[in-house]
Design a protein around this nucleic acid. Structure first.
Length: 108
DNA sequence: ATAATGACTGAAT
DNA sequence: AATTCAGCCATTA
């Protein structure tokens, strides 16, 4: 795996419990503000069993961005709800409430 | 090294 | 506000 991918994983691990972040957000925090897609690719290649909370990463719309047919989108949503993240009727997450800026990592 | 793909985003319609 | 088009990046063939 490349250094970039490794960095993505590290950043995703920094996302606080019960909070979500966009691909572009991760990319920006890594210093690659336009590598949102690269982040997506990195998470896509993420091996099962990895201690990386990939489910805390959603698209800019605050919605599950996974196109896969199966236990992808559904699983992610379940995991997020399990952490206290609420989904709107449209299936979107209130960014103002659960959006993570990349600062305070779980402490006010 | 070139071309194609994809868990993205922002601007335009 | 929702949908469509084009641009960007990293990875894989």
């Amino acid at each position: 795996m490349s250094t970039f991918t490794n960095r993505v994983y590290a950043m995703v691990c920094r996302v606080p419990h019960g909070r979500v972040v966009s691909y572009g957000g991760i990319a920006a925090l890594l210093g690659h503000p336009r590598a949102a897609r690269g982040v997506g690719q990195a998470l896509h290649a993420l091996p099962d069993g990895a201690d990386v909370p990939w489910w805390r990463v959603v698209n800019r719309n605050g919605e599950i961005s996974i196109r896969g047919a199966m236990p992808g989108p559904q699983l992610q949503r379940a995991l997020l709800e399990g952490e206290g993240v609420e989904f709107g009727g449209n299936g979107r997450i209130d960014w103002r409430r659960f959006g993570w800026d990349g600062q305070w990592e779980g402490r006010a």
